[in-house]
Design a binder for these strands. Structure first.
Length: 153
DNA sequence: GCCAACGTTGGC
DNA sequence: GCCAACGTTGGC
């Protein structure tokens, strides 16, 4: 089993939105970055654990936990002209973008903020803490996941 | 709102 | 294939 961190802007889609979805699941649509796509398409498996990270908000940080409940399939929003994730260069016969579905697991009592994460020595190699990192999906180690989960409880 | 860091685009 | 210009991300 693998561990991941997925960023989302809570104004657009928050962990509360995930919790309130039918069956508490949702497709993770709209990823338009090849590296992040490759993680979803090739490496994310059912049952993998996911830290849900809220970005572009106060405070930024990990808000809770989800898990992968459906493995990759084409992101059909790419050819939905009404979607804000529409990509004119995409051909449904040859999908370019993929997504997985995630299921809500739990909300932290309070968000484990970015500044708190930065204070933990054992987390210093996390990609999310690197300056200028913009990748919206990053792998995390089991240890990192467990430390953050404990911080949130 | 600012701006540094990054990914993508497109001319050459 | 290089790289400048551009658009986006995201913390502050």
């Amino acid at each position: 089993m693998k561990y991941w961190l997925m960023k989302t802007e809570p104004d657009v889609f928050s962990i509360d939105d995930l919790k309130n979805h039918p069956q508490k699941t949702s497709p993770w649509e709209g990823v338009r970055n090849y590296q992040a796509r490759n993680f979803m398409r090739d490496e994310m498996k059912k049952g993998d654990k996911v830290l849900i990270y809220h970005s572009n908000c106060k405070p930024p940080g990990v808000a809770g936990i989800a898990e992968v409940c459906k493995e990759s399939y084409p992101d059909h929003f790419a050819w939905d002209k009404k979607s804000k994730y529409y990509d004119a260069k995409c051909d449904p016969q040859n999908p370019r973008w993929f997504m997985v579905d995630v299921k809500f697991k739990k909300m932290f009592k309070s968000t484990v903020s970015l500044s708190e994460l930065k204070e933990v020595k054992a987390l210093e190699s996390m990609l999310i803490l690197r300056k200028g990192n913009r990748l919206s999906i990053t792998p995390v180690t089991k240890k990192e996941f467990e430390i953050i989960e404990k911080m949130g409880d």
